[in-house]
């Protein structure tokens, strides 16, 4: 008797535990907002502005997903994460998706059980040094003190680079970009290394950015993209196709300027129509409204607009499109077709 009561109670416990893992899209809809993991602050990618409103290139992805689901680009909670906390936050369900300069790697995709839904920035690891250090190549850095964020791919690449070139360094481990910036400016480290985009963004916040240079070596491939947990492919589809919608919008010439006009009635380009929901049932196929992509694009513009507005050449960060140009213009940004 006692035994059966015990096991009965255990079963109840098991059932309540099971409830926590329903479909993510339903959870998000029920909650009324999206929990999006972002960085603790990298200007241009994710940082709060003077009024505390988050903005940036990665933030743009979060807002687009929120807009696709709710039609409201503000229906999102931004959860700042560090290099060390981001994966735990995602695996534990504290956040629904992560958009934080995160590199797509084999082990993260497989062993850590995450699903990268695409690449929103093709990057590589660089080195930032003060001009007066008198160093022109990363190979001259023997014995240098290097600031490095822990829990990142950059930390692993750095170790490999120095070992392969048979030179030594003194790592100064840091948690966040802000800490790295502070130690680098104070001269507590000679070099700051992370993704080249992050370095450009950090340098743009210096008092005199021109006193610092990026060394010519780019020592790794860092395809950065949003990711979700394994095991909920439907949710992965929502995030993946929101990103693809932004990319396709640029390719098809859909911008925030002509969005209203193009989505009002079917145009004579069927792919634009399918994307914008004036033809076909694509929205319903991923459990969203027909105008999901219209909302996503409306949140911050298409991929190219997000890029230009946040990190492009007209901003202080001044990144060229380079590898991140449309495939039609010699870059790698490419979306599978909407059909």
């Amino acid at each position: 008797m006692k035994k059966s009561v015990f096991f009965g109670a255990l079963t109840v416990a098991a059932l309540t535990a099971g409830v926590a893992s329903a479909a993510t899209l339903d959870d998000v809809k029920a909650r009324g907002s999206l929990n999006c993991g972002v960085s603790t602050g990298v200007v241009g990618f994710a940082s709060p502005d003077a009024n505390g409103v988050w903005e940036g290139f990665d933030i743009g992805i979060c807002r687009a997903v929120a807009a696709a689901i709710f039609g409201d680009s503000d229906a999102v909670e931004f959860v700042p994460t560090t290099g060390q906390t981001r994966f735990t936050a995602l695996a534990s369900g504290e956040i629904d998706m992560l958009a934080r300069n995160t590199t797509w790697t084999f082990s993260r995709d497989t062993d850590l059980k995450f699903e990268f839904v695409g690449v929103n920035y093709y990057d590589g690891q660089g080195f930032l040094v003060p001009k007066d250090l008198g160093v022109s190549s990363a190979k001259d850095l023997d014995g240098a003190t290097v600031c490095i964020q822990t829990g990142t791919t950059t930390e692993l690449n750095l170790s490999d680079f120095f070992r392969i070139n048979n030179i030594s360094y003194e790592p100064v481990p840091i948690e966040t970009n802000a800490e790295g910036r502070q130690q680098y400016i104070a001269g507590a480290c000679d070099v700051y290394t992370t993704d080249a985009s992050g370095l450009a963004a950090t340098r743009s916040t210096f008092e005199s950015p021109d006193d610092h240079v990026l060394l010519p070596e780019i020592i790794s491939k860092e395809p950065l993209g949003p990711l979700v947990r394994h095991g909920d492919s439907e949710w992965g589809d929502v995030v993946r196709w929101t990103l693809n919608a932004l990319v396709s919008a640029e390719e098809l010439g859909v911008t925030s300027a002509n969005l209203a006009e193009l989505s009002a009635a079917p145009t004579n380009n069927p792919e634009v129509n399918r994307l914008l929901g004036t033809e076909g049932e694509l929205g319903a196929m991923i459990g969203l409204d027909a105008n999901w992509a219209v909302n996503a694009i409306g949140a911050g513009g298409n991929y190219g607009e997000l890029f230009e507005k946040n990190i492009g050449e007209s901003t202080p960060i001044g990144l060229a499109r380079g590898l991140n140009a449309m495939w039609t213009e010699g870059g790698l940004i490419y979306s599978p077709p909407f059909r």
Binding site: G83, T88, R108, P173
Partner: peptide, 24 residues
């Protein structure tokens, strides 16, 4: 130690190792 990046056991096993291997 976490506040100043001292490489204690929290920082190696409980920090970097966990985030590189996902073995929280």
């Amino acid at each position: 130690a976490i506040a100043v990046g001292y490489m204690d056991v929290r920082a190696t096993l409980g920090g970097i190792t966990i985030s590189q291997t996902g073995r929280e």
